[in-house]
């Protein structure tokens, strides 16, 4: 019994030290991690809404979005969209003008199969934007759908559909709720 207590104590002490070390590391890296995420979102916002000069973060129920303004004028919305693909969540940000016409889509994070689903976010050599996402430009976000507006990627129909369906679903929900 005595031995058991001793073992427990030693293990407990090691766990305690480990937790302390990790807590310190976490506190040190946290600002940096948050900063990285903010930068990522900011650069995505600039890409999909090049004419806007300021973005205000807002939330509407569960939807996170940014109001894109040029000077004081509201030029559109950038909405965070999450789709469920093959390997897990696909997090995107979709830029739309006030009537819901898509200005641009950026994928922030995805876990699709490399070589198949990952093509949703792959850029052809010499081009600036992923060729799959480029198709969304100028389409109405609320009704966008595979086949009609968007050509699915060969071998990755499900990932393509996940992206498209998530955009149309979130956009519909968003425009139903947002104040005009």
């Amino acid at each position: 019994m005595n031995q058991l207590v001793k073992f427990g104590l030693i293990l407990g002490v090691i766990c305690l030290i480990a937790t302390l070390v990790l807590a310190v590391t976490y506190e040190i890296t946290k600002p940096k991690i948050d900063e990285q995420m903010r930068l990522e979102v900011q650069s995505a916002l600039k890409r999909i809404m090049p004419d806007a000069d300021s973005f205000d973060a807002k939330t509407l129920d569960d939807i996170e979005y940014f109001e894109a303004r040029k000077g004081a004028e509201l030029v559109g919305y950038c909405v965070k969209v999450t789709g469920f693909g093959y390997g897990g969540y696909i997090r995107m940000i979709v830029g739309m003008d006030r009537s819901g016409i898509i200005k641009g889509v950026r994928v922030l994070e995805h876990q699709e199969t490399p070589g198949l689903g990952s093509k949703i976010n792959e850029t052809r050599p010499g081009e600036a934007e992923p060729y799959f996402l480029k198709q969304f430009k100028g389409k109405q976000a609320r009704t966008v759908s595979v086949k009609k507006d968007i050509d699915a990627i060969t071998g990755a129909t499900i990932s393509s559909r996940a992206v498209t369906d998530a955009i149309s679903k979130t956009a519909t929900e968003f425009f139903n709720k947002v104040k005009r």
Binding site: A18, V21, T25, K32, Q36
Partner: peptide, 14 residues
């Protein structure tokens, strides 16, 4: 596990 988590955090940050 401690070292792995440190690596995880550092990779996320940098």
């Amino acid at each position: 596990a401690t070292f792995v988590t440190i690596t995880e955090l550092l990779m996320k940050a940098y």
